[in-house]
Design a binder for these strands. Structure first.
Lengths: 134, 134
DNA sequence: TATAGCGTTAGACAAAGTCTAGGAATGCAG
DNA sequence: CTGCATTCCTAGACTTTGTCTAACGCTATA
């Protein structure tokens, strides 16, 4: 998933027109499963050959999230993380270091889940285990 | 828990000196189980008899959270909610309305939880069910 | 009455994110 | 190819939440 053609294909098949900037950002995100902030992505994008403005980075991340290419992870009040792993999983968030790490799906099991309020549907189930150094 | 003396006692027994502003803010929070943002609390505090500055509201909420009087809930990237219910429970977050509601503990059951990373301890386990209007 | 220490304050500041207005690229019709 | 519409990108202004700073007030104790 680090090769440009695969990325272009991936974008297209999600209904995203693969512009230079979008492909650049997608390459950063999909290089490996990771958690990046918008700031980090902006910085990384501008180290590479092409560049992208702040507005474009935010627009693109919003678009990717809407299309399901990326998952927004809200654990730190000061910034949102973009997770390139969209398969079902959960998170540890270390409040001492600010580090976000994955918990595999099969490490948690629910045997009971709540009924949703009338007139609503679920869009995601998040589990965050906040940890600190001991 | 809406009576001033009870609140003063509650603060004292958590090691918080009960100043005018802190009692005012505590009264707002503990009037009933609810989820309020700092902005809302600031506004409500300044409708009442005494007043509190922005800095004091933020300081006080941070102090209350540290002392376990209140729980920070991070679900909306734009603001943190302060939850006056500190007993174990989980949350629905409606992304259409921005409304945060409780899920009682017994509506969710885990039969498997992950091991923590080496050298860390858990500080909280959060479950957030994101919902939208259907 | 002096002093120390904590709490509060206004307002400046910081950082993440949004908005706007215009320009560049792309694609399509004729 | 030319003209036109549409989509995308951009710089920079702006907004909002939250933090910081420096001065001031309050209370308690000696």
């Amino acid at each position: 998933m680090n090769n440009r053609d695969d990325i272009v294909e991936k974008l297209k098949s999600s209904g995203v027109t693969p512009t230079t900037q979008r492909v650049e950002i997608a390459q950063i995100l999909f290089a490996r499963p990771q958690h990046l902030s918008a700031e980090q992505i902006l910085e990384m994008a501008n180290e590479g050959s092409s560049t992208a403005s702040k507005a474009t980075v935010y627009n693109t991340l919003g678009l990717f999230a809407k299309k399901g290419l990326v998952k927004e992870v809200i654990v730190d009040p000061s910034k949102v993380f973009y997770d390139s792993n969209v398969s079902r999983h959960f998170h540890f968030f270390n409040t001492d270091t600010g580090m976000l790490t994955d918990i595999p799906v099969d490490a948690i099991n629910f045997d009971k889940l709540p009924e949703l309020p009338e007139g609503t549907e679920s869009s995601s189930l998040e589990v965050i285990v906040r940890i600190k150094n001991s």
